[in-house]
Simulated assay, not measured.
Amino acid sequence: MRRKLITIRDVAEHAGVSVSTVSHVLNGNDHHVGAVKRERVLAAVDKLGYRPNAIARSMVKRKTATVGLVWTEIDNPIFVPVILGIEEVLRPAGYHIVLASAPDVVQEIQAIETLRSQQVDGFIFMSLSICYPFDHLVRLNNEGVPFVVINRCLDESTIPQILWDERGAGYEATQHLLSLGHTRISTISGPIHDSPPRRSAIERHRGWQEALHEHGITVPPEWIQISDYTYEGGYQATQQLLELRAHECGLPSAIFVANDVMAASVLKALYDAGLRVPQDISVTTVGDSPFAAYTVPALTTLSLPVQEAGREAAQILLEGLTHGKSTNAAKITLKCRAQLRESCSPYHTTT
């Protein structure tokens, strides 16, 4: 037998109050409702099993308590902790996330239109540092839609942005190797020549360069390998370096790898070649994905504060949802933290 649909009128009759009183209590606008009436309404809701019609309420309020999260690469390891950080803030505030994958600017614009047609209340854009054009975001901002971007450096002061200190990460990772006595430090950089460019790859590479420059160190061009942030790319780049054993410049004593996905395959390539990490070659990287602590040896890395980025973005967005627009247009840059593990050791002259 089909269960009777419980309405707000049923709750009002059961509690002995008006429909408007029930509505005030359910919507939290009950400061003028007496404690006794409020308790009767809540007891009636509980006993009857009343559930408000979310669609109808959103039509009246013109809010859906949903936030669109638009993502360039949903399969990246940092995806989960960023979402956890966002949900830490949004879920207690009554908001839910609607995901949309948009690997390029055209699909991002389409995702915005689709999610706006579903009446999401705001957006968080998470880019893996690909520098897309952002005219569509300027338009969104001008229309008063609250949103925040993570990891996409925009030349627009009125758009709230959360960034990681990518250059600082490359610099600190290289400084750690220098502090251990290494001066023969090569790099396997990310896709710095891609179009559109990867901000993270460019900035981490600059950090590596700056650390070496401060110590007056130049390296052979053969020690600079450009790869693509993938396992396969990291392995192939390491093989290119290993071919230098018979070359005049020889092998480096340490490698700064631009991300930990490539670094994991660097360890494998060195192992396959009969080289020991860190006894023969030290390896440091950026990212600190969950697997970084479980490679053999465990990777020394500069940890990206990904969950913190999610929390910061959600906090700013909540402010925007409260005021109708993001009122904090600050560009927040989060510092990376060193995770010192087993893949680095002091330089030995026998290397």
Rank of each mutant, 00 (worst) to 15 (best):
V45R: 05
L128D: 13
W71C: 14
S343E: 07
S253L: 02
S189N: 06
L321K: 02
K47I: 14
E308R: 15
I150E: 06
V219T: 11
A93H: 09
V277I: 02
V261Q: 12
G207I: 04
A93I: 04
Y229L: 10
A254T: 03
V19N: 11
G68Q: 06
F134S: 09
R51A: 13
G216R: 01
H176V: 05
G233I: 00
D135Y: 10
R116A: 11
Q175V: 12
A54F: 10
L299T: 05
E156H: 12
R245N: 13
P297G: 02
Q279D: 11
I217Q: 03
G320K: 01
Y294W: 14
T333A: 09
G234D: 05
A246C: 06
E108D: 00
Q315T: 15
E73S: 12
C336I: 01
T183N: 10
I109Q: 15
T349Q: 15
P146H: 03
V283P: 11
Q107F: 03
S189K: 07
L242K: 04
H205L: 14
P160W: 09
V296A: 14
L154S: 05
I316V: 12
P81M: 01
G287K: 05
F147E: 00
R204D: 09
R57N: 08
A43S: 06
F125N: 07
S58E: 07
H136C: 00
L241Q: 03
I83V: 15
